[in-house]
Design a binder for these strands. Sequence first.
DNA 1: TGTTAGCACTCATCAGCTTCGAGTGCTAAT
DNA 2: ATTAGCACTCGAAGCTGATGAGTGCTAACA
Lengths: 345, 345
Amino acid sequence: MELDERKITILKAIIKNYMDTGEPVGSRTISKYVDNKWSSATIRNEMSDLEEMGYIVQPHTSAGRIPSDKGYRFYVDQIVLEKDSEAAEVQELMIKRIDRLESVLKRLAKLLANDTNYAALISGPRYQQNKLKFIQLSRVDEDKLLIVTVLEGNLIKNTIVHVKDILNEDELLNMNILLNSNLNGLTIEEINLDVISRMKQQAGSHADVVDLVLEQVAEVIRADSEDLQIYTSGATNIFKYPELSDNQKASELLQTLEHTELLKDLVDTGDDGENGTGIQVYIGEESPVQAMRDCSVVTANYELGEGIRGTIGIIGPKRMDYEKVLKTLRTLMTQLEATFKKEER
Amino acid sequence: MELDERKITILKAIIKNYMDTGEPVGSRTISKYVDNKWSSATIRNEMSDLEEMGYIVQPHTSAGRIPSDKGYRFYVDQIVLEKDSEAAEVQELMIKRIDRLESVLKRLAKLLANDTNYAALISGPRYQQNKLKFIQLSRVDEDKLLIVTVLEGNLIKNTIVHVKDILNEDELLNMNILLNSNLNGLTIEEINLDVISRMKQQAGSHADVVDLVLEQVAEVIRADSEDLQIYTSGATNIFKYPELSDNQKASELLQTLEHTELLKDLVDTGDDGENGTGIQVYIGEESPVQAMRDCSVVTANYELGEGIRGTIGIIGPKRMDYEKVLKTLRTLMTQLEATFKKEER
DNA sequence: TGTTAGCACTCATCAGCTTCGAGTGCTAAT
DNA sequence: ATTAGCACTCGAAGCTGATGAGTGCTAACA
């Protein structure tokens, strides 16, 4: 059986109605919805077909129909097809220029959650290759040095260390030169024993400072590539949707959102999504995360140049407003990119 | 009427039982609990008295009794009195040495939530007076400068700015000297027009770089003193306690925990708590936060020297294990302090 | 042949009712 | 002062019938 014009109209009507109310929708409702163009009986026949084809399901015998995962999938694919026709009307999402990317991301998640009324998730950038760009030692106290480490992609880390061996201004300057001339452009793997012993030799009596600094630098780089930062916001928005907020499910979902390690699968994909937009839609069972089998998840990958990539995601009920979410995400990506570029200008 | 020995025993028994089960406890249960030392009828009489005195309440006519806020308060006060007798047995909470305080605090919150099975909250330090300690400009790219700002208390902030006016190495060095000699030890209020114009004069042709840097520094300092960082963890632990996890309450509580601005009142207090331990216990209505009227909240103020103060808090059901929470918090404070001192050593 | 009206049927929901049992308060006996 | 006994209360849980939304099927219709 094929999906003819009328079946499509009815299917869309069912989905739209269910999105509004969250209640199963019956044949009479649809009949009214299409201005009595067809009677409820006709609709019933068509619905029966649609059910057989797997686009809608009946929660129980005498209830209306609700869209199945397949139904939503059809609907979303329709939207993606139509997307170019609906250009304008992009609502400006204010992003203030802020000094740190992390802070931008947190605010973005909050913004997104507020704007959509779903839960938002955003992963901090994964830095592809942690090359050292710049190291600077400064004295902050008599016996304390500040190590500033700048990695490729302008990721900055600070460490304060205590030194027994107190360097004077000239020695500090020389140490800076020594560090930068030997380490710049290297990844952590490339800092091997050979490099280290050469540096120590050059450092002469201050070899132990070299050791100290290298140890800290190594820790900084390792720490960064190890733990993936994920921020969530608006998790409690799920209480706005009765079908998600029964105690069992809500608890499970919220717990998953709290334990970011469980969200890895959502942001790990290098997938470029449908049409290479970097946007992906997981409906119900399609989701890679167990606890989200009753939700839909929309993720978008952002890329800020220099191999800095991350993911933004929206988690909501299956009846989420896909149109709005997709539009918002697209807008956001554009603005995020623009903002970041401006900042680094 | 006075609280005699037996009444106290019974009250404690009621509270202990209720803590375990979360269910109203009846006279027979207590009678068994005290090895039938008194019959259930006797207990009933005493319970009747205790109710009249306000230490326990009956949720409905034919249910057992549960402790009232006043009852809990009595119990907590008892514990605080006895605290010195129970010294040892402090369970070691591993705190790894990490480079940034923020990171330590986040992990601490997680640790605390896991350890207690309640929700944990921790506020980043409030820096009393944001005095500038050190500024360093470095070149990271042809046309980009890294500004490292170190504030009193070794709070470090980084900013990358784009400069049109490209300085050579010598000029950069001079600029660093200029900045540090003029600004060190000043608070933001003290950086007035007078200071600025003097610096500009000294900078000569690079006056605009001074402007740029000062603008960034001002923003950094302001940003830090403005938004108080609060981290929460284990919020979903509240689902473990039926009396908190009905949908209405859970939603409200979780929302409050998500919107950190609502938690200000919990961490703002300069109060030194009972016995000057810096620990405070809010039971039910005593809580300054609306959504926590059905919970108990225990907060502890930590102080890491140099005016760096913050708050750690535990949010749980009224029947929380106060003894354990108080002990854990005390231990934690000690260890946090120790760790931090070691780090700055 | 596609559409519609009509009707019997299903089933979730809800209000009202009963039963059950945990727990109380009171009284009288010890 | 303590306890046994008993009538009483009330929430929880289970049952029942009414209600109504919604379906599937059949027969009539255009």
